[in-house]
């Protein structure tokens, strides 16, 4: 039977996808529910729509940590 699921399609580059999958794993280790419903391909993921907001915030935080800033260096 053909299955039809509602969710959110996430399109990104492979690096971000890795980060998202890592977050997903950490969540599962902490005993919480995973939010990745399906791993589509290198640049696409299908995720649970309820977690979208949390995911974006968390992702922004991680990307911020990993940016190079030169203004403090100056």
């Amino acid at each position: 039977m053909v299955k039809a699921r509602k969710g959110t399609l996430l399109e990104c580059d492979p690096a971000v996808k890795q980060i998202v999958q890592d977050l997903d794993n950490k969540k599962s280790e902490a005993g919480e529910k995973r939010f990745i419903l399906e791993d589509l391909d290198e640049t696409h993921l299908f995720i649970d729509p309820c977690e979208v907001e949390w995911l974006q915030k968390r992702l922004d935080e991680i990307l911020e940590e990993n940016t190079y800033r030169f203004d403090d260096v100056a």
Binding site: R5, T8, L9, E11, F46
Partner: peptide
């Protein structure tokens, strides 16, 4: 471009086509 790193869109996934 950093701000556009990920694009989200509401979708329905169809799978398991015999």
């Amino acid at each position: 471009m950093e701000r556009n790193r990920l694009r989200l869109s509401g979708a329905w996934l169809y799978s398991d086509f015999t």
